[in-house]
């Protein structure tokens, strides 16, 4: 349920955008949800809808577009690229849950499939990002 905390961070950022850019309203928010964080999209959307109401942002939930971003991990030692979903079946439930909370702990539980190094970059698909916020001035 920490999807709520992340949903709130999206809405608070939109509220800040209104203040900082003197916008009349927000018409569209495009959110990317990284595969690595394994966000429950149903809970995330439900949370967005509820937080949206509590901040009285006056926009329709349908105008918040949420897309999943496939992860790309790249080994710093041998250069191999892979994704979280390719190695998911090697992880225990408590390990995937830990990655859900703090995606960086992937370095503890995951290894490069080629050279077994924990030294890899999370190139994309880490967590929740706002791709764009559109509004009227």
């Amino acid at each position: 349920m920490h999807e709520w905390a992340l949903a709130e961070s999206v809405i608070v950022t939109a509220v800040d955008e209104i203040k900082n850019n003197k916008l009349k309203n927000i018409s569209r928010i495009q959110v990317k949800v990284g595969e690595l964080q394994q966000i429950d999209l149903g809970i995330f959307r439900f949370a967005l809808e509820n937080v949206l109401k509590s901040y009285a942002l006056g926009m329709d939930i349908e105008n918040i577009i949420v897309e999943t971003d496939k992860s790309v991990l790249k080994c710093k030692v041998c250069g191999t690229e892979w994704s979280f979903s390719e190695t998911l079946n090697r992880l225990q439930d408590d390990e995937t849950e830990a990655i859900h909370f703090i995606p960086e702990v992937a370095h503890i539980y995951m290894r490069c499939p080629s050279c077994k190094s924990p030294d890899f970059d999370i190139i994309k698909g880490r967590g929740v990002w706002i791709d764009s916020i559109e509004g009227e001035t």
Partner: peptide, 19 residues
Amino acid sequence: IYFAGNNPSPLRGNDVSNA
């Protein structure tokens, strides 16, 4: 430790920041 247990955490700077 709630998420890492007693395992070593080999995190580079950007990962430390993100965490």
